[in-house]
């Protein structure tokens, strides 16, 4: 009993004496560990990249892999430098990139706006949904890429056919999410707004739309990727400019390095778009409590 008491008293004294220092050192230790893990993660990523790229280069150098069919990292970089300095067959590289970005962005905006408008309208008005539902399902069931051919016949080889194709791809993703989001709205919130005196339009604006926004924003990630796919596939099917055309040309001339170089550019485009979208999403959904996944992300990043 007395021993116990003594022990407790001792540990209490030492605890109060070192409490501040302990808290400080624990925080510092945690910080150190986190930084260490981050450095290790990046190092691991770099090594992986070096292994893949280096291995590829070595394999083509010693001719285990045929550089004519598979390209090589050095060949790809040279092709990019060549494009940047002397331009592609259709004008400067920057012009091709810009054309594709423009088509994708216009298609994205058109697809998102129309998707949200139709999604919310059909979600809010049951009658509209009942009438139009089957048609939307039919169009959605089509492999939408084949629509690209029709758009090129209708709209020609210019940008508009690609914009429309990108918009159609984006539309369906956003539409279904907006529709589902509207249907998913908490009935309790709507009832509360009605009691507080909200009109139908006010309910849509202040309750239904913001509630559906979570779903809509979740669809934007996928949509942005789809808009780039739409633009490039459209260019592939028939165009006068753009990265898709550059790839198609490289393919026709068996220029593997050219195909990979264009792929690399598209990849960088897609990744930057993704990063921008993540930023936008964070801003728009700032009211939400951080999910555990996001906390985990923050810890790793």
């Amino acid at each position: 009993m007395t021993d116990d008491a003594k022990l407790t008293a001792q540990s209490a004294a030492s605890a109060s004496g070192h409490a501040a220092a302990d808290a400080g050192s624990i925080a510092a230790e945690a910080m150190r560990r986190r930084r260490r893990r981050r450095v290790l993660t990046y190092a691991g990523r770099l090594i992986t990249l070096a292994l893949i790229v280096g291995g590829w280069q070595v394999l083509t150098d010693v001719k285990i892999v045929d550089a004519f069919f598979f390209g090589s990292p050095v060949g790809i970089v040279n092709r990019l430098i060549d494009w940047a300095e002397h331009g592609t067959a259709y004008g400067s590289l920057w012009e091709q990139i810009w054309i594709t970005i423009e088509e994708a962005l216009l298609g994205f905006v058109a697809g998102v706006v129309s998707g949200v408008v139709f999604g919310v309208a059909l979600g809010e008005f049951r009658y509209l949904a009942d009438v139009l539902g089957p048609y939307i399902k039919v169009v959605n069931a089509l492999p939408r890429i084949v629509l690209g051919s029709i758009f090129i016949i209708w709209l020609g080889l210019g940008m508009s056919s690609k914009v429309v194709l990108a918009a159609v791809l984006v539309f369906f993703v956003v539409f279904f999410n907006a529709f589902q989001g509207v249907r998913d709205v908490d009935r309790n919130l709507v009832a509360n707004a009605r009691i507080l005196g909200a009109s139908r339009l006010q309910i849509t604006r202040h309750v239904v739309f913001p509630s559906a926004l979570t779903w809509i924003i979740a669809s934007l990630h996928v949509s942005l990727g789809f808009s780039i796919i739409g633009a490039i596939v459209g260019e592939f099917l028939g165009a006068q400019k753009g990265l898709g055309l550059v790839i198609a040309t490289a393919q026709n001339t068996f220029d593997a390095n050219g195909v990979f170089a264009a792929m690399l550019v598209i990849g960088i485009l897609a990744l930057s778009a993704e990063a921008l979208m993540a930023q936008l999403e964070r801003r728009l959904l700032s009211w939400r409590p951080p999910s555990s996944a996001e906390i985990a992300d923050a810890a790793v990043a």
Binding site: N188, L189, A191, L196, G197, H206
Partner: peptide, 27 residues
């Protein structure tokens, strides 16, 4: 008529003030 629901029917994307002034705003 005013109604207080069992599960609070607050709009999660609005601030506390934004939620409280819904009534006057709707009116």
């Amino acid at each position: 008529v005013g109604f207080v629901f069992q599960n609070d029917a607050l709009l999660p994307w609005k601030t506390v003030l934004g939620n409280v002034l819904l009534g006057p705003m709707f009116r």
